[in-house]
């Protein structure tokens, strides 16, 4: 019981791992491009939270992990913006965002 009440690095890392696993699960079972992008963003959230917790608990200056987490937040937003533009293009040409329908080869 004491371990649950004293919040520490282990708790934040556990949440980060669960978020990352949720993202992987969403990547595997989702068939919609929007949900795939949301799953990738959830994975990035887990990574960011892990870096933030490590920078607080293991870094005296809080700079290294924080800067890396900030970079990851920016790159994740970039990834989602480009992914949404690509998904919009696919929707304009194929009429659907289902990956089973857009994955068919020609010929």
């Amino acid at each position: 019981m004491e371990g649950f009440l004293h919040i520490g690095l282990y708790h934040f890392m556990t949440i980060a791992i669960i978020l990352f696993a949720m993202g992987i699960l969403g990547l595997v079972i989702s068939k919609n491009l929007l949900k795939i992008l949301i799953s990738v963003e959830i994975m990035f959230c887990g990574i960011t939270l892990n870096l933030a917790a490590l920078s607080v608990y293991c870094d005296i200056t809080h700079f290294e992990g924080g800067m890396l987490a900030l970079s990851i937040i920016m790159l994740a937003s970039l990834l989602v913006a480009i992914g949404l533009v690509i998904a919009l293009n696919i929707y304009k040409f194929k009429g659907t965002t289902d990956i089973d329908d857009i994955g068919e080869l020609k010929g």
């Binding site: 963003e41 960011t48 939270l49 933030a52 607080v56 924080g66 937040i73 994740a76």
Partner: peptide, 19 residues
């Protein structure tokens, strides 16, 4: 908000505004 609880306000504001 978890980042706020970690006392990383700059990162938390970036997470809320951007993500």
């Amino acid at each position: 908000m978890l980042m706020f609880s970690l006392e990383l306000p700059f990162l938390a504001v970036s997470q809320i505004l951007i993500a």
